[in-house]
């Protein structure tokens, strides 16, 4: 799970999301011999998946196949299992799946693989299943990227991290950041004592960072590991008059973070490779479906996956110099 906002989305059913999903999932009458590939998600209405599906569509167009988007509109584990089973019932040529809960979906994933349907997971994995491949953000290395961005700008002082310590993916980002700063930038001081818990809200990020800035006046850098943290921390820096003194990098992007970057209230943010997940997931399943990969003579018989089991789709630093490329894609 790389999208923090899902934590609150869990709690509610989303009416419009259903409509969105329906509009995306309407099946176009397909030509007799045209292959159809499905993307299956949960919380299918949120725009985070739109970028991944755009990538899948781009690849599908290039390959001359059809891409269909479906999923369960709610944060509903059995709902996603059901949608996946229904999708498999349509005899798809391939499936790109983001996993709501690793164990719950494993049997269904293994069934699909057993019946010869190429299936890859993206963004969130079911690592013990037989899926061909997982394409997602390496959270630790994303933290490393953030650290190197900060290290390149700040020469000294202390670095704070605004995050949710109890959330595993965010904890990995934090760890990557702290390890790298300590290893590569010894003049910058950071560590557990500089972590602020933003409890997934902008308000807590702002209050927490404000207090830490009081306790530690030498803070010169901030890494916000989720979008709410970035927005709240940016406010805290603005309200303390420290926008120009403290270097700040966030995580994920949306219109709000891009605006903050453009008006100078946020130095940079990290964009996940969601488009990449969709594009290369499509490519992977197409290649398996159409037997285009022969890593060994008969990988199916040998039980050897022809695809790389884990693909880090990486992060990209967005700052004022390149922010316009993420707008209105």
């Amino acid at each position: 799970m790389n999208v923090n906002r899902r934590d609150f989305l869990k709690k509610s059913g989303i009416a419009a999301a259903a409509a969105f999903a329906a509009s995306q999932g309407v099946k176009v009458t397909r030509a007799q011999d045209m292959q159809t590939y499905y993307m299956v998600s949960f919380l299918s209405g949120i725009s985070y998946w739109a970028d991944a599906f755009r990538g899948m569509q781009d690849a599908a167009e290039y390959l001359g196949v059809e891409a269909v988007y479906t999923g369960t509109p709610e944060y509903d584990i059995t709902g996603e299992v059901r949608v996946l089973e229904e999708t498999l019932g349509l005899q798809p040529d391939g499936v790109l799946l983001t996993v709501i809960q690793a164990d719950a979906l494993q049997p269904t994933i293994d069934n699909a693989i057993g019946s010869g349907i190429p299936l890859v997971t993206f963004d969130a994995d079911s690592p013990l299943s037989n899926r061909y491949s997982f394409l997602g953000t390496g959270n630790y290395s994303a933290g490393v990227t953030a650290a190197r961005y900060i290290g390149g700008l700040a020469d000294g002082g202390k670095a704070a991290v605004v995050t949710v310590p109890s959330q595993n993916n965010l904890a990995q980002r934090t760890q990557g950041f702290i390890d790298t700063i300590n290893a590569e930038y010894p003049n910058i001081e950071t560590g557990d004592q500089f972590i602020v818990d933003n409890q997934n809200t902008s308000e807590q990020a702002a209050s927490g960072l404000s207090a830490l800035l009081q306790a530690e006046p030498d803070i010169r850098a901030v890494f916000s590991s989720n979008a709410q943290a970035a927005i709240g921390a940016a406010s805290a820096l603005r309200e303390a008059g420290l926008v120009d003194t403290v270097h700040h990098i966030g995580f994920d992007f949306d219109e709000g973070t891009l605006d903050l970057i453009d008006n100078g209230q946020l130095g940079a943010t990290l964009a996940q490779g969601t488009w990449q997940m969709g594009f290369w997931g499509m490519m992977f399943t197409y290649m398996v479906r159409n037997s285009m990969i022969e890593s060994v003579s008969d990988w199916m018989a040998a039980g050897i996956s022809p695809l790389p089991p884990n693909v880090d789709t990486g992060v990209v630093v967005i700052n004022q110099s390149n922010s316009q490329f993420w707008r209105a894609t």
């Binding site: 509610s12 989303i14 009416a15 419009a16 999301a17 919380l43 209405g45 949120i46 725009s47 973070t257």
Partner: peptide, 17 residues
């Protein structure tokens, strides 16, 4: 639940800036 759902529906789950 309704108000949260409505906010998500209005925004399609993203932040508005």
């Amino acid at each position: 639940g309704i108000a949260r759902g409505a906010s998500l529906a209005v925004t399609k789950g993203t932040t508005l800036a």
